[in-house]
């Protein structure tokens, strides 16, 4: 899991405001993600963590600033964002599996419709992915038959089926019952071990500390501190980070 010096995502002066600037959701954020790196974004709720993450694949349109991915600025309106999103998997808090499709169809839909794979190739790949997470017996079930943990693992696998260069996780365990958090974190841990580049918005401090290469702390839409887990958790400098850690640890 070597982290290269190759910068995969670079966010420059990213700002997002609502109501003609009355509400500032993101305030001049600058962050870099290198290939193979796991970056955890932490901070109190409403701090802009999710907004920042969702700006990386333009689910949120930034008001100003740039998001460079593979060297191109995604925030440029003339950019074909769909092509770049194919290389950026995303996992949501509420899973967002497609309820009218079976597990297998959920996984194969994008690769087949985007002509990345033939239906039989996509199916073989989906079965291999399901095998990996021990859910191959659920291939023909509908999402409503699954537990929260199973749904989220399948949502992760659905994103992986596009063979992305980076995976974005938006509070992936926040909507889960406590006994199901472990299985999802285990899968994320194993992805990290395989060298997947990951950006994870999380409230799981244990996970951030153990798995992340770098931790980013946000409050009020701004990045206040970033560093290695030991720098952030053992020697926090910013008073708001200290205050936050005192509350959550």
């Amino acid at each position: 899991m070597a982290i290269s010096n190759d910068i995969l995502i670079r966010v420059e002066h990213l700002t997002k405001s609502y109501n003609d600037g009355a509400v500032l959701a993101l305030n001049d954020c600058n962050v870099e993600v290198r290939r193979g790196e796991v970056v955890a974004i932490i901070g109190p709720s409403g701090s802009g963590k999710s907004t920042l993450l969702r700006s990386l694949n333009l689910l949120e349109t930034p008001t100003s600033g740039a998001v460079y991915f593979d060297g191109v600025n995604l925030a440029d309106p003339s950019m074909n964002i769909d092509r770049h999103r194919q290389k950026m998997g995303m996992v949501f808090q509420h899973f967002n599996l497609f309820p009218h499709k079976t597990v297998l169809q959920n996984i194969t839909m994008a690769p087949v419709n985007l002509k990345k794979k033939t239906p039989s190739q996509a199916q073989a790949q989906a079965m291999a992915l399901l095998e990996r997470i021990g859910l191959s017996d659920k291939a023909n079930e509908y999402p409503n038959m699954l537990s929260g943990g199973q749904k989220q693992r399948i949502a992760i696998v659905r994103a992986l089926a596009m063979e992305p260069e980076v995976m974005l996780f938006d509070e992936p365990t926040s909507a889960l019952d406590p006994e199901m958090v472990g299985e999802v974190l285990d899968l994320m841990r194993s992805l990290a071990k395989d060298g997947m580049t990951m950006v994870v918005v999380t409230h799981e401090m244990g996970f951030a500390r153990e798995v992340a290469d770098r931790v980013v702390f946000m409050a009020n839409g701004a990045i206040l501190e970033q560093g290695t887990p030991s720098q952030i958790f053992d020697a926090p400098k910013d008073p708001r980070l200290r205050d936050f850690l005192a509350k959550v640890l």
Binding site: N57, L59, D82, R83, H84, R85, Q86, K87, M88, G89, M90, F92, H94, N96, L97, F98, M109, A110, N113, L114, A155, R158, A159, M162, L168
Partner: peptide
């Protein structure tokens, strides 16, 4: 979230 999930996979 359904539209977002589909768009995040790269679908138009």
């Amino acid at each position: 979230g359904q539209m977002e999930a589909a768009r995040s996979l790269g679908l138009s």
